[in-house]
């Protein structure tokens, strides 16, 4: 369950919107921030808040890249695999990250810290190769830089 204050705030936002359902992505993001990912329970809560059916929520939730319907780690790494980043990397970044984290794309490290997801161009081609960690952009990346970033996050986490 969403904490009461958070829920109230969302309800207020929804009431202020012209149409409740225009906020479906925001509500899902809020629920995701709370649960870590959009759980089944969160789907029902979103449906309830927005006056939509769970099926309608699911239809939207499963469309988008940044809505996670499965558990993710504390840090979600979206690594760009589009053309400029691909061309600018010695080795595909995804491959490098898989190796360093010891997981396959789509997986989460055993310590629950990192989830690795390939995405299409993140709009940082001028800083290629690039990736997002929890939506913060990093680039241009080298293997050494990646090491430093991961170490830093491991220490924080």
């Amino acid at each position: 369950m969403l904490p009461k204050t958070r829920k109230k705030a969302l309800q207020k936002e929804i009431a202020a919107a012209e149409h409740a359902r225009e906020l479906v992505v925001d509500v899902l993001m809020a629920l995701q921030a709370h649960y870590g990912h959009v759980t089944d329970e969160a789907v029902f809560e979103a449906a309830d808040l927005l006056g939509m059916t769970p099926m309608e929520i699911e239809e939207v939730a499963t469309f988008y890249t940044f809505i996670y319907r499965r558990p993710v780690g504390k840090y979600v790494i979206h690594v760009c695999d589009s053309v400029i980043c691909w061309m600018e990397s010695e080795r595909p970044l995804l491959e490098v990250l898989c190796e360093k984290l010891g997981i396959a794309p789509g997986e989460t490290t055993a310590d629950g810290l990192f989830t690795l997801l390939p995405v299409c161009c993140i709009g940082y081609c001028d800083r290629a190769p690039a990736m997002l960690i929890n939506r913060k952009a990093y680039g241009p990346l080298t293997e050494n830089k990646i090491d430093r970033i991961l170490t830093g996050l491991r220490q924080e986490g």
């Binding site: 359902r21 225009e22 995405v119």
Partner: peptide, 19 residues
Amino acid sequence: SGGRYICGEVTAQINALQG
């Protein structure tokens, strides 16, 4: 947005805005 290239297309974007 929740993030998808097609959301950049006009009519898809309008659908996206309507949830």
